[in-house]
Computed example of a mutant assay.
Amino acid sequence: MFYIKHNSDNFTIIDCNLTDENKDAIVAELKKESASKSITRFICTHPDQDHFGGIELLDDEMPIRNFYVVKNQAVKDTDTDSFTRYCELRDDADKAFYIHKGCKRKWMNLGDDTRDTSGISVLWPDTNNADFKEALADCEVGDSYNNTSAVIRYKLENGASVMWLGDLETEFMEKIEDHIKLEKTTIVFASHHGRESGKIPDSWLEKLDPQIIVIGEAPSRHLNYYTGYQKITQNRAGDIIMECVEGKVHFYVSNSTYVGPSKLNNESRTTFPNYIGTLEVEVEYTLDA
């Protein structure tokens, strides 16, 4: 689960996996951090339980009025409370906005006199792409949901960019490489929680040229550790806060003993507890295929 507290009048939540043990603390934090914002959106990357788990708990406490989702008719062997609520939000004509490659929406990526853009763009899916259509068909018979994942990119003006890949699988990413715009991105969340099955292809990494790869909380035996890249591993770091400012990202984690990547500078920041270092954001560029 991620959230972005934008410099504009926007607040974005990407996926969730709430449980009885963590829901109170997380919902309280979300309420506090979003209190000053008029627009809150929830982006669900794909219909897997661990990406919308507990969404009914969140929706009850913080009613979701802007639900961003890849259009689908996913089915499950067991309809959990979370999946039932996901489907209600997904199929609600007043709340759902179906995301796809290049889509535009106030105030996700269109600003006006009322408020500025949030800086979010959707790079995938291309709903006309044959490989996506095949993945969607698998999703809608309950076989697999991973390759219906949206690719979301956030860009701070004069600052860092961040990319989420959901649970895309390596072979699928290789198939669609020529159909998605890949450009230098400061921080990339490894697909499928960092699993080997979601290893970002080397050809993608050459274009993305990430300064930091965040590896998720999959069991260690299933992880790919992206040799040669600076990494933050959530199994050891715990929760991560990225304080994004012009030209820099200050990192904080919940594990007070965690040691950050070697290329982070020490600027002795104290905005949040457990500061682990600061990243100088490199100039971005697009590498043509």
Rank of each mutant, 00 (worst) to 15 (best):
F189E: 08
S203G: 11
W204G: 13
K199R: 15
K184G: 00
D239P: 07
I241H: 01
G247P: 06
E174G: 13
I215F: 09
E217G: 07
A237L: 04
F251R: 09
I187L: 02
K181Q: 10
G194V: 03
S203N: 15
G198T: 02
H193L: 10
G216K: 06
T186Q: 03
L223T: 10
E243H: 07
Y229H: 08
E177Y: 09
D209G: 08
S197R: 12
K175T: 14
H250K: 10
A190N: 06
I187Q: 00
I176A: 08
I213D: 02
L182Q: 09
K184H: 11
I215W: 02
N224I: 09
I200R: 12
E206D: 15
K184D: 03
I215S: 05
E217Q: 14
D239V: 08
E243K: 09
E196T: 12
K175M: 13
Q211W: 05
W204S: 14
K175Q: 13
W204T: 05
K184V: 02
N224V: 14
Y226S: 01
N235W: 04
C244V: 12
G238D: 04
K248M: 10
K207C: 11
C244A: 10
H222P: 01
F251K: 08
C244E: 09
V249H: 02
V214L: 01
C244F: 05
P201D: 11
I212V: 14
K231I: 06
K231V: 11
I213Y: 00
S220W: 07
A218L: 04
G216N: 04
Y225T: 15
R195P: 02
V253Y: 02
R236S: 15
H192V: 09
I241E: 00
S203F: 10
D178E: 14
D202P: 03
I215Q: 07
I200F: 02
F189D: 10
V249Q: 00
K207T: 05
E177T: 10
D178H: 06
D202V: 12
H179Y: 13
H179M: 09
V249S: 08
Q234D: 08
K199N: 06
S203Q: 15
I241R: 12
N235Y: 04
K184C: 11
I240N: 03
H222S: 14
I215P: 05
L205Y: 01
I241G: 00
I180C: 05
A190L: 01
S203R: 13
H250W: 05
H192Q: 08
L208T: 10
R195E: 14
E217K: 10
G238Y: 06
V188P: 00
P210I: 01
I212L: 15
H250E: 12
V188I: 13
E246G: 01
I212K: 06
F189A: 10
S203M: 13
S203I: 15
V245G: 13
V245W: 04
I240E: 02
I240P: 01
I176T: 05
T185L: 05
S220Y: 06
K199C: 00
T185F: 07
E206R: 14
H250S: 05
T185K: 11
E196R: 14
A190H: 03
